[in-house]
């Protein structure tokens, strides 16, 4: 769970850094999208590295989901008779919503791929014209709102996931006890906020 989580976290960061190139204008953004296909040339052929990354990500997503389902089932089995009530003391909203948050993120990713990779739900999809596709989709109010909501869910998932993965991998040590949750929260807010800046910029007319 933690290992696949780290892989997916690194993807989320890399994807964000790529996405932010949209603020450099259509030419830079489309060149970046094209660059994802030509990177590694001439050693790698066109799109090879992209497909290797996609395969790694698909495997990581499936393994992450499998681990989540297994641990959830183990936990449900572990308490056949539930409490009348169990008062939460230490846990966070983010920790309690990891499972539903994960489901929402899967739904979001499917929509996101249909929108920008397959172009099925995009209002005016033009293959290769990535900047146009992004703006065309996010200009629609409800779509932008859904993207923003999904990034809030992602931020919550990352907040618990970041420090939780370090805990599972045995990297948390007593000296960092006072601030590691704060750092995890800051990372989550930074990532979610940076992603949200794109639909907000489109709605505000900064990207057109």
């Amino acid at each position: 769970m933690a290992v696949t989580g780290v892989i997916l976290f690194l993807f989320v960061v890399a994807h964000l850094l790529g996405n932010l190139k949209i603020f450099e204008g259509p030419a830079a953004f489309d060149a970046y999208a094209e660059g994802l296909r030509t990177v590694g040339a001439p050693f790698f052929g066109r799109g090879w590295l992209l497909w290797i990354a996609r395969v790694v990500l698909i495997v990581a997503v499936l393994a992450h989901m499998w681990a989540a389902i297994e641990t959830t089932r183990a936990s449900w089995r572990a308490r056949p008779v539930s409490y009348r009530r169990l008062e939460p003391v230490e846990t966070t909203y983010a920790a309690r919503t990891m499972r539903w948050g994960g489901v929402l993120i899967v739904v979001y990713v499917i929509y996101h791929l249909l929108d920008f990779t397959f172009g099925r739900v995009n209002p005016s999809f033009v293959p290769g014209d990535v900047y146009h596709n992004v703006v065309a989709s996010l200009r629609v109010g409800p779509v932008a709102a859904a993207y923003i909501a999904a990034m809030v869910v992602l931020g919550l998932h990352l907040y618990h996931g970041t420090w939780s993965a370090l805990q599972t991998l045995g990297l948390n040590r007593p000296p960092t006890g006072g601030w590691r949750r704060g750092v995890a929260a800051a990372i989550a807010v930074l990532i979610a906020g940076a992603y949200i800046s794109i639909p907000v910029a489109v709605l505000a007319g900064m990207l057109r």
Partner: peptide, 29 residues
Amino acid sequence: GFGACSNHGECMAACPKEISIDFIARLNR
């Protein structure tokens, strides 16, 4: 048949001896 730890930290809050979940990180390590 115990469940799987998902790092809620409730154990530490309930522990009458206030044992820290840092020991869980140590166990994982």
